[in-house]
Amino acid sequence: MAFRRKRIAILFCGGTTLDERDRPGDTVRAPKDMDRWLAQMGEMEIIASIEPFFVYGGEGAAIGAKQWVQVAGTIGREAKRFDGFFVLHAIDTLAYSAAALSFMLQKLPVPVVMTGSPIVPKEGRRQTVSKEGFGQYSSLGVKANLVNALQVAVSEVAEVCVVFGSRIFRGSQVTMNRPGALNAFDSYDRIVLGKIDFGTKFFSHYVRRGDRALKVSPKFDPNVLQLDVQPGLPSLQPLESAVRSKAHGVFVTAMHITAIPQRTLDALASWHRRGVPVALYAHHFAERPKQLPFLFVELMSPVAALVKFMWARGQTSDPKRLQKLLDQDSAGEHVPPTSPRAV
């Protein structure tokens, strides 16, 4: 009996370097590089019928809302034509993009699988993954990772996932590991969506393919000031003009609310009352102090929290609606308060 190969769109957004020598055809920097790159990975056509789309080929650290919206837009437009999407992405910022796609693409009927090469192209700056895991194969390990990730893109899952090494992560929970770790990624609640052993294996809590209408909400507001409150933080006065002229929101992280000096709370409250929403993030707030006027973001990774705030801010400026969006579990990003979390 014939089996039908699935049709998969491959989106190039960095993270494509196949070999440390970075020879012509090893990296996709521009649309003209795609064919040569695909010729090096011809075996992917055994798994699926592939159609390429170019999104971005520059520095990974520069990927942001513009590229997120481009990727989501491509997926939204092409969703009916393909059985899955395979996004190659620079691994430095992949966790942010995975979270962004998770919020923008809801009711996914097919998989969106993300991965990338740990090899830095010639013009790149740093190594993010230990050579011990991938290094024993060098380019073979990188290519094997791509083949494994493509196999996930033809599987029965219908979520935004990140595949790296032997693990499959939910896109809204993936975090980056410390530099030099064997796996570049981990899951915020330490629970993975699935693993790759002799094939793909999913655990019970995943969304399956289904006949659903994809809902694309591609608006983002990237004009968010990020503030990490540490002891001894000086006055926020120098930030006043930035907040007044540019910021559409302020995202604040602190060890505890009680670790934020009163003068800092007062400054943040004045911004919030002037219409610049201030969101406080912590893993979990045992209670949300009523005297503080801010928005609260909790029960998700710091990456997902920041990206979700930017996405929610893109949907609305109304504080009540913002809080409602931040509180709802939009893309499986919520973890229980007692769950172990990646540091």
Partner: peptide, 30 residues
């Protein structure tokens, strides 16, 4: 410990592909 899929630890693969399916294709590609 090395984050390796188990298939990578195998020394060789044998596939009976008379009745091919997605997994058989994946194994050959791998």
């Amino acid at each position: 410990a090395l984050e390796q899929p188990l298939l990578e630890t195998m020394d060789a693969i044998v596939v009976n592909g008379t009745h091919s399916d997605q997994q058989a294709g994946y194994l050959v590609a791998f």
